[in-house]
Write a protein that binds this DNA or RNA. Structure first.
Lengths: 372, 372
DNA sequence: AGCCTCCGTGTGAACGATAAAATCGAGGGT
DNA sequence: ACCCTCGATTTTATCGTTCACACGGAGGCT
């Protein structure tokens, strides 16, 4: 049934405290504390003795006690969203992982909570902060008219956002991927490959990232003087492969069909690839496709895609929220800290779906053959 | 730059404590505490007065202080994995959300951390528990020879797993989806539809869920007396649509090709659907396909799929780990608690990819038309 | 009247850790 | 011999909350 009746000593029934260590080492509590927090104040000999006892007893400083004393919980709050779409999900996963990893390096952990909607999320954030359970919070998936930044600012909760609203972005800290530059670089790449009619597949207007991606496509097409040829090749729908397929078929059926498309997500792009092949066209040779997000599926299928530096965003956002919580801005006369506004450049990963003419790439190259 | 220079009162620079409330209400700390934790011990009149002051001052009990006093952090630890495959990711998202939601109902939160591998994860779990940062931990994505349950048991860390190892399952608490029953029900469904040669697409041996799904297919096929016709139709590879496609093509090229396949994941299944259509066959009519996980993609594409009751698993796992942490098993003479072993039945969601003969289903039915 | 009980409230201690201040001993300068 | 400094360590106080107990007054019972 259970392992053994009397454990040797690996799992102490009573957790070992700093006093236990002090007693065992023949010093006072504070000396043990100094060994851990200010080793230079302790004589080398004593330090070694205490360190050994700490290891022997398996002592770990109590997180709650430390947080209480420092009145800093060393926790960053973050909501986990229910599964909306596949794309969001994939990003959420990677973002949360990046946050957790970045926080861990400075001894901070992630406190995850669920909330029904953004209003409930803002309330939760405020409550958690007031209760001293988190020193700050992270927001993501920001919509243009998102109420969260405003409410948290009003409540005085330190936070940093991945993404930004349409207005008021100067008053809070955020980091965002330059979606506009992402789709623009995709267009540049396609133009350089000789394409002149370049379509766009994306969400309907109303999302922050989506609108920026559409805008990047539009301005880049215009900049290359291809607006007249391309501006009718802008189609929108919800983010599924099915819709991507349908939209692409529509485009190909038009009088002046595109020779290349930029998709707002890999999901759209995968759907588009199917549609291309359905029409008996060769993806990458007859019609080029570039996706967005560089999902595992893109790598597997040889789909060119714009890679978001999610890990970097996570690091930045975590670093910023920690900076904000470092010294509360309410403190005496201190000048209020300048909020962070950072736009990170995404990176276009070229694969077979948009560069078949590359010939046989060297082994291990990212431009793997298109196998659909 | 910043909103205002002197906030009216919404964000108190100094957090309001229980003593502040006590002073403002003209009672002692303990009375305020009683109002919150044992209202029946306080006279109604006093209770109302204190409650009002609490609301006015916006008092929230300090989480850290409460945890320290109770020596129970009301936190459950859980690792977040880096993105392995798409399938894992989708499940991870939903599982973490289910956990967070279930925990919230009893005032518990999720502490997320990153770890390079299972060994590091076990170490982190132990450290977090020793440090009193979590009252217990949750494991998931368990492999047959997973070292985590053993190590955590040895360290005395309360935990519950989503999934189980090959041996020793009786000594720890777990909940799992009955993967075997899932693929078996898919086979039953296909047999009922008249299929006799039923293939299987899955991972190579070595994963817990994967082996169980393969086993379910095999035993069900055998039970229906179709082993001879089907046993050579078992193909394996990594979990990508590309591989799914390739494997399906292989199956269809064989002498006695399958008229239906059961896939270990929706990813395999989506790939299989592509291959079917490539051969000029009609998915659902000529060749039936059933996936696993009921991902959003499956719903969108009309792919029949076995749905895992993730939400229910999350609730169960959270409830169990809270039960385990309720009273430490090390306490005096108390009989050790019986660990939980629970197998949850998945549910087959039939859609067009395996039941085209259903004709036009009533509007809103799950058996939506197959649009690939 | 005297004693016990019960109810509402207040006081002291403790949870485990750490910042700040006090203490102690050794050495150095005059 | 005295004072001073300096480094190593201990003592004291504190973070915000809750448990265990003490206290005082009202009421009932003998």
């Amino acid at each position: 049934m259970t392992a053994g009746f009397r454990d040797t000593r690996p799992s102490p029934a009573q957790p070992v405290t700093i006093s236990d260590v002090a007693e065992a080492a023949g010093v006072s509590r504070q000396t043990v504390s100094n060994v851990l927090n200010a080793p230079d104040r302790v004589r080398a000999e004593t330090r070694e003795r205490v360190t050994k006892v700490i290891a022997d007893l398996g002592y770990h400083p109590n997180h709650m006690a430390r947080s209480l004393r420092a009145s800093s919980p060393r926790m960053i709050g973050c909501r986990i969203q229910p599964l909306h779409a596949e794309t969001v999900a994939a990003i959420q996963d990677r973002f949360l992982h990046a946050l957790a990893e970045a926080g861990q390096e400075c001894g901070h952990h992630l406190l995850l909570f669920a909330a029904a909607d953004v209003a409930a999320e803002a309330e939760q954030c405020t409550a958690l902060w007031r209760a001293g359970a988190v020193s700050g919070v992270v927001l993501y998936d920001i919509t243009p008219d998102d109420p969260r930044p405003g409410r948290l600012t009003a409540a005085g909760v330190p936070f940093t956002a991945f993404g930004r609203t349409a207005v008021g972005t100067e008053s809070y800290s955020w980091a965002d991927v330059d979606n506009t530059a992402g789709t623009a670089s995709a267009v540049d790449h396609l133009v350089a490959a000789g394409h002149r009619r370049i379509g766009f597949l994306g969400w309907p207007e109303g999302s922050s990232a989506g609108d920026a991606r559409a805008h990047g496509w539009l301005t880049a097409v215009d900049r290359h003087g291809l607006l007249a040829a391309s501006h009718r090749l802008d189609v929108r729908g919800d983010d599924t492969t099915t819709t991507g397929s349908r939209l692409m078929r529509e485009l190909l059926d038009r009088p002046g069909p595109p020779t290349a498309v930029v998709a707002a997500t890999d999901t759209f792009a995968v759907g588009a690839l199917h549609a291309v092949r359905d029409q008996g066209l060769r993806p990458g040779r007859d019609v080029a496709v570039v996706g967005f997000d560089d999902s595992p599926a893109a790598a597997a299928m040889g789909l060119s895609s714009v890679r978001q530096p999610i890990k970097e965003v996570g690091r930045l956002v975590m670093a910023e929220v920690l900076r904000l919580t470092g010294r509360p801005p309410g403190a005496d006369g201190e000048p209020p800290q300048e909020p962070l506004h950072r736009l990170l450049a995404p990176e276009l990963v070229v694969r077979a779906s948009s560069a078949p003419s590359q010939g046989s790439p060297p082994a291990g190259s990212d431009a793997s053959p298109l196998c659909l």
